[in-house]
Write a protein that binds this DNA or RNA. Sequence first.
DNA 1: TTTAAAAAGAAAATAAAAGAATAATATTAA
DNA 2: TTAATATTATTCTTTTATTTTCTTTTTAAA
Lengths: 253, 253
Amino acid sequence: MNLTERHQHILNRLKKEENVNVIDLCLELNVSSVTIRKDLKLLEDRQLLFRTHGGGTLINPYTKDRPVTEKAMIRSTEKISIGAAASLLVEQNDCILIASGTTVLSLASNIKPLEKLTVVTSALNVALELLRHPEIDVIQLPGTIRKTSASVTGMYAEAMLKDFSFSKLFLGVDGIDIDFGLSTTSMTEAQLNKRMIAAAQKTIVLADSSKFGKKGFGKICGLEEIEQVITDSNISAHMVETLQSIGIEVTIV
Amino acid sequence: MNLTERHQHILNRLKKEENVNVIDLCLELNVSSVTIRKDLKLLEDRQLLFRTHGGGTLINPYTKDRPVTEKAMIRSTEKISIGAAASLLVEQNDCILIASGTTVLSLASNIKPLEKLTVVTSALNVALELLRHPEIDVIQLPGTIRKTSASVTGMYAEAMLKDFSFSKLFLGVDGIDIDFGLSTTSMTEAQLNKRMIAAAQKTIVLADSSKFGKKGFGKICGLEEIEQVITDSNISAHMVETLQSIGIEVTIV
DNA sequence: TTTAAAAAGAAAATAAAAGAATAATATTAA
DNA sequence: TTAATATTATTCTTTTATTTTCTTTTTAAA
């Protein structure tokens, strides 16, 4: 039995029983505990399981049971830092637009407004997160809800955006590529994001370093349309230079 | 059983019973009380429960205005039954409208669609609840979010409703009075509910028995505009008769 | 073959978890 | 209020799991 078969086996057991432990896997697969731990680590890096002391589990053990919030924990440390850095850009009496995605959700949980703030968002979980603050006027965009991101898309949201102008847009994306520009997995979401960029005076992209060089299915826009990127320190120096040469402000946390 | 599995167990028990105690958990999980206390402390640090003397609870014991998700627990048994009864009225391929409130949230958690279903809602928590079902197309109405009910109101939602026609509206209210009719605490919500009634062929009101004879601030409509009421068995016989005499179908659970 | 690279394992060092003992604190009943 | 009781926090020890470094084995390529 080789490495991939072993990994397959581990994932199958996880699917059946939701969690596995190192010792059982050693016996079942006739390999040492060191090997199993390496397997688990690798699978965790690929975000196929969560490591626990003594084994692994399929579901993130420490999130409330919303499917969407669980996803937020992937690369959580980076996302939390990026969200915190983005929250510093929010000023008093701002009118901002927040798109969907796990990274901007982290922004939402980091916002601590001192005075009035108006937030329009497409993401239901962002809206719910912001409800905690009485200082914030939260406005929800309408539309069909995408199950994977818990956010709306569609013509109603696009039409409504035409009535507003925002000082800033906080945008999360699935891919940033020098040539292809910004992209996301859904066509309708890309369409809405395009309108969002048009409605905002400044577009700030929140993206952890894994997003660079990647392309999602739906193109949102070229890089020339954005003003600022916030990312983590694993971004390559070359990418930073390229972005800066186009005139994009790069913030590294 | 390892640490994470134990934590999972504790959270599951909490979800079912709202509070746990140290001694029971010791026996159930075969670990010392020291360990359980460490578990509870850790889960409290992650804001997944609140520590109490001798155990833990899901609800913060020291806040007055509970967030929306917790408010659902008040009169929960009645609300669960009412929600379950209402869910039976949902038919395949229906296009329904669900308003806001804790009772209709209970409807949302009871819906188990067999085939396609389209749901439009003003309440964010209803929308999130329904996302679990791939068969349901969930459409969110837009607008400013009321913090107390986590639902939208305002002209954008009202305007959007004009584009649709629904077979049924499920409405939660704060008061049902023979003379004053249906009412709710918020003026803007009353306004939206009015439009909702106009957009639906049939209005089904979900209200536990405590709501009868009460008046909220904002009048929604007179009783003649509704077709059906679902309530619990504590409603007075006289009230049932009066409602039926106006031609309202009364379902008691 | 020889060599390089990947995979697996052994062993020691390190870290985490669990429980015991006890002091500190909170709750309850008198 | 006080005393009795229950619960919690703290410290320490034992056990268990993990990480790290290094060696061996296997696999693939030159």
